[in-house]
Amino acid sequence: MEFPAEAFLPGPRVTLPGTPGGPLAGLTFAAKDLFDVAGHPTGGGNPDWAASHPTPARHAWAVRRLLDAGAELVGKTVTCEISLGILGFNPHEGTPPNPAAPGCLPGGSSSGSASAVAAGACDIALGTDSGGSVRVPASLCGLYGMRPTLGAVSVEGVLRQAETFDTAGWFARDAATFARAASALLNEALPEPSAAGVLVAEDAFAIADAEVREALAPALARIGGMFGGVTPIALAEPGELEVWGNQRNICQRAEAWRNFSPWIDRCNPRFGFSAARNLAFAATITPEQFAVANSVRARVVERMRALLEGGAILCIPTTPFTAPPLGLSLSELDRQSGRIGLLCSIAGMASLPQLSLPLGTAGGKPCGLSIICWRGADARLAAIALALENAR
């Protein structure tokens, strides 16, 4: 069955006014259909989720926070099925368009939120990021997009996938709007932009296409100029980034199966092939495999702590390529998803904040440069983004 490609959910828009006079007054926002809005079903991108769960009586914390800050809710957006997707397609509700790269995938699973912001349909949009679902669409759609420190923005009232990976993030087209949303969601004023060194992960850049590396070189130079130069490093031993990516997948999928399996057992819901396959794999993960994966996670945490706890920032490509075209085969989609996972696993495994900056263009399509810092310095990343934009 064909569905129109739209950023927002089919049917009447869910709209709510913001509190008059708040710091975000005059701005609009949308919320991914994993965030509860009181009185409206949370669909989660699956036709059987809303039917088997009660309609929320309360707003998700992040929705309430933006409304209280004065922003107006203008709709709920399409998500990959129960957030199991990284390239943005949904077999039930359609694939949102990529306004920055027409005819291409938007990235996901916060695809609708990124699409709505990129199209100018709202100023800010809420998304979730477990394995890259804010960072990836931010890169492919040419937006600012943040995965915050795990727990820095409450996920109360959000359909959960994997509890040690789930974060609530947001998108904006410009750094000033992004920073205003950051202050509201992080509940703190932005500090002065600072970095005790700028580290460039050469092994992460080696994963990216040559055109992406070339497109991001001027942005690296700008950041280095702001903070006294850059230091090339290797994040890991040869081949180790692939291990990190594989073991992150095991950790995240095992947690997803633990969260979704009671619902699956009770309701036998309908799934598209990609989500069903992910869940079938998750069901086979043994406790021993999960334990090994968590030991690898501990290695990632300690490596990132050694690099970043002193105040340095780490630069990597957000995605290894620009937005892929629509209509790719399943095998090609799998290959692209796997490459993305190598880059997204770094911050995900270590519970770090990562901000994708829309500072590159390759082949006429956007690509993002990510800055990563140690836990809790989320507002500092937003301040750096704002300083870079103001310095243009």
Results as ranks from 00 to 15, higher is better:
E6V: 12
L9Q: 05
P10D: 10
R13S: 11
T19Q: 14
T19W: 13
D33T: 03
G39N: 10
T42C: 00
H53G: 03
P54W: 14
T55D: 05
P56T: 03
A57M: 10
A57Y: 04
R58L: 14
R58K: 15
A69T: 09
G70T: 01
G70F: 04
E72S: 12
L73W: 00
C80P: 05
I86N: 10
P91R: 13
H92T: 12
G94L: 14
P96L: 01
P99G: 09
P99D: 09
S109M: 05
S115K: 06
S115I: 05
A118L: 04
A121W: 14
T128F: 02
D129P: 02
G132N: 12
S133K: 06
P137D: 00
S139K: 04
S139I: 05
C141M: 10
L150P: 01
A168N: 01
G169C: 13
F171K: 11
F171L: 12
A172I: 13
R173A: 15
A175T: 00
A179C: 05
R180V: 03
A181D: 07
N187W: 09
P191F: 15
V200D: 01
V200C: 01
A201Y: 10
D203K: 02
D203F: 01
F205V: 00
F205N: 03
A206G: 00
A206E: 06
I207N: 01
R213L: 06
A217L: 02
A217P: 01
L220D: 08
G224V: 08
P238T: 04
G239A: 06
E242K: 10
V243M: 08
V243N: 03
W244D: 04
Q247V: 14
Q252P: 04
W263V: 04
I264W: 08
R270Q: 15
R270W: 12
F271N: 07
G272Q: 07
F273Y: 15
N278R: 09
F281V: 08
A282R: 05
Q289F: 07
Q289H: 14
N294G: 12
S295W: 11
V300I: 04
E302H: 11
R303L: 03
R303S: 00
A306V: 08
L308D: 13
E309G: 02
G311V: 08
P324D: 00
P325W: 08
L333P: 02
D334A: 13
S345R: 12
A347C: 02
G348C: 09
L352E: 07
P353A: 00
Q354Y: 02
G360L: 09
G363R: 07
G368Q: 14
G368L: 02
S370K: 13
D378L: 10
A379Q: 13
A379D: 14
R380S: 06
L381F: 08
I384C: 02
A385E: 05
R392H: 07
